[in-house]
Nucleic acid binder design. Structure first.
Length: 558
DNA sequence: GTGATAATGACGGCGGGG
DNA sequence: CCCCGCCGTCATTATCAC
């Protein structure tokens, strides 16, 4: 086996030397972190391109390369990150004080909200509970009222909500659809654009200053002076952690934030923790000081994460990071077309061929597994990139398609673990967790990897496949605590929570990411927003979290 | 053979960032 | 203005379990 592998390597080296006119034979042995180059004189510009591809501003890349030469990639990267950090700090303050739209430098997120005036409910929750109470007083069941509000929107007049419930009761599905569509449209216009602008501008603006999407900081890119004020209503206990896709239809994050105690979301791209991009928003009330990553630090580039692909990676494919891991992979047909196109165009494909191939590769996250041969990622490769161990989702009657699906829906473990790391010193003897929409157990794995004992875990997950995966992991990882499965978030009622919290003496953490189906950019059919069929389960996250908070206070837990 | 499940190919648009 | 990327859905076909 070994000799076969060796001879393969040698064959390839010879090949590469032939196709790359002036490369030294050493180049095939250099660490994978260094990009393959043909001409050493242009290696600097290649590195330059790589950093630009990774999204770093050119002025910073150039400055870093002036300081550290053109070849020491790690030194350049460190310099880039340092410059960005330095740039961010003063800009943050200057910007706030110079912006005429923001009253003063002490302006907080909450104050921004109050600026929009009373026309828009600054306390979405109050409105929510008022409407719920009103409907219940009118004799409707809790779940009827709940569904109506979440389907039609909070701004819907009470008469129309009643109409919706009646239509639902009478089973007039068509009427229901029409009504719902009409109400959603109306709800959007009712919300009013001017009122939303201040918040949107603030976040958009934040994005402009931090194009890397590093939230309140990622390893090596600390933002030292960030101190955030969490509104009293949002403070723990319990701690909570909510996740969803970063890029949603407009207004969705504002809306979710309004429900989750007006806490400002933290937008983070998992490219800072792994070899793949994953742009997500997180709303949580965790401390943000003294975070630390779990060890070992995973590979940060495709080349490190999938060394097998180095052998066939063309020099003109400058990708070092994968795009977002999705629930579906590219088709065999597309990989076939790519191979045929490249075979036809010879060893040095023309620009338009390269461009087309790269476009496909980026679109489907193809990697190079043979000469002119690309392939989608295997499930076990995805498992590792997402921070799980190999075979986490394998076996036990789970199909390949299902593995792709549940992995694509999961947390990136290293990213979430970094945020949760502050819990380690707070709960040294173990933690009680209510895990909603648990999926394959990203939250549980993250806490476990942090070395926080899992004392009492209630996992709510509708997919039997996912429940089996979590249960299987639980049994195999020497857990000493209790794991309880619940099928449906709608079964997590006040009574059920009281029962569970009697058993556990409260929850320390409520964690989960609700369905993104109706928010995600990939969805061509039902990207309906927060009130879509699946994504409206967000309101169950909020409902349950809020019940836990109230029970916690009432019973004196925490 | 038949129903159930798995695998596969085809399918734009919105919004962020430059 | 352009470029790029996105926790996806649907209809059809292939495979599987009896």
């Amino acid at each position: 086996m070994g000799s076969n592998g060796d001879s393969d390597d040698i064959d390839w080296s010879d090949d590469e030397v032939r196709t790359c006119s002036s490369v030294s034979s050493v180049s095939v042995h250099i660490p994978v972190f260094t990009p393959p180059t043909c001409e050493s004189s242009t290696s600097g510009s290649k590195i330059n391109n790589r950093f630009l591809e990774m999204g770093y501003p050119s002025r910073v890349v150039l400055k870093a390369m002036e300081e550290h030469g053109e070849d020491d990639e790690e030194a350049i990267l460190n310099a880039i990150l340092t410059y960005l950090t330095l740039e961010n700090l003063p800009k943050e303050e200057n910007h706030v004080s110079n912006d005429p739209h923001i009253s003063d430098s002490a302006s907080t997120y909450k104050e921004d909200l109050s600026d929009v005036g009373n026309a828009l409910e600054s306390q979405g929750q109050n409105k929510y509970f008022e409407t719920m109470n009103l409907l219940e007083d009118m004799g409707f069941q809790y779940d009827e009222a709940f569904t109506a509000i979440n389907r039609c929107g909070l701004e819907t007049p009470i008469e129309e909500l009643v109409e919706f419930i009646d239509a639902a009761k009478m089973g007039k599905e068509d009427d229901l659809q029409d009504l719902q569509v009409g109400l959603n449209d109306a709800g959007q216009s009712r919300n009013g654009k001017k009122q939303k602008l201040s918040r949107e501008e603030r976040w958009t603006d934040t994005g402009k200053r931090m194009p890397l999407m590093i939230g309140f900081g990622v390893p090596n890119v600390g933002i030292k002076t960030i101190h955030r004020e969490i509104p009293d209503a949002g403070k723990g206990p319990p701690y909570f952690y909510y996740e969803n896709v970063a890029y949603t239809p407009k207004g969705v994050w504002e809306n979710m934030s309004r429900f989750l105690y007006e806490i400002e979301p933290e937008f983070v791209d998992s490219m800072h923790f792994s070899a793949a991009a994953r742009k997500r928003g997180y709303i949580h009330n965790l401390p943000i000081d003294e975070r630390f990553p779990i060890l070992p630090i995973p590979p940060s580039t495709i080349q490190e994460a999938l060394p097998i692909t180095n052998k066939w990676w063309p020099k003109w494919d400058l990708r070092t990071k994968l795009n977002c891991i999705l629930i579906r992979h590219g088709s065999a047909e597309d990989t076939k077309k790519i191979k045929e196109e490249l075979d036809k165009s010879g060893p040095d494909p023309p620009e338009h061929v390269r461009k087309n191939v790269l476009e496909q590769c980026r679109k489907y996250n193809f990697v190079w597994v043979g000469k002119n041969k690309v392939a989608p990622l295997d499930p076990d490769e995805i498992e590792v990139i997402m921070g799980f161990s190999k075979c986490h989702t394998r076996g036990g009657g789970i199909s390949t398609t299902a593995r792709y699906q549940c992995l694509g829906n999961s947390f990136q473990v290293d990213t979430v673990a970094y945020h949760l790391s502050v819990l380690k010193k707070l709960f040294p003897s173990g933690i009680n967790v209510l895990s909603l929409f648990s999926g394959i157990g990203g939250a549980e794995v993250a806490l476990h990897r942090l070395g926080i004992p899992l004392k009492f875990i209630v996992s709510v997950e509708s997919s039997e496949t996912c429940r089996n995966i979590l249960q299987s992991w639980w049994e195999q990882s020497n857990q000493q605590g209790t794991l309880i499965h619940i099928f449906d978030v709608r079964d997590v009622t006040l009574g059920k929570l009281k029962e569970l919290m009697d058993m556990s003496h409260g929850f320390d953490l409520v964690i989960g990411g609700s369905p993104c189906n109706n928010l995600a950019g990939r969805n061509r059919y039902t990207r309906d927003g927060l009130y879509g069929d699946q994504s409206s389960l967000f309101f169950d996250y909020f409902r349950i979290l809020d019940l836990v908070k109230k029970i916690t206070v009432y019973r004196g837990y925490g």
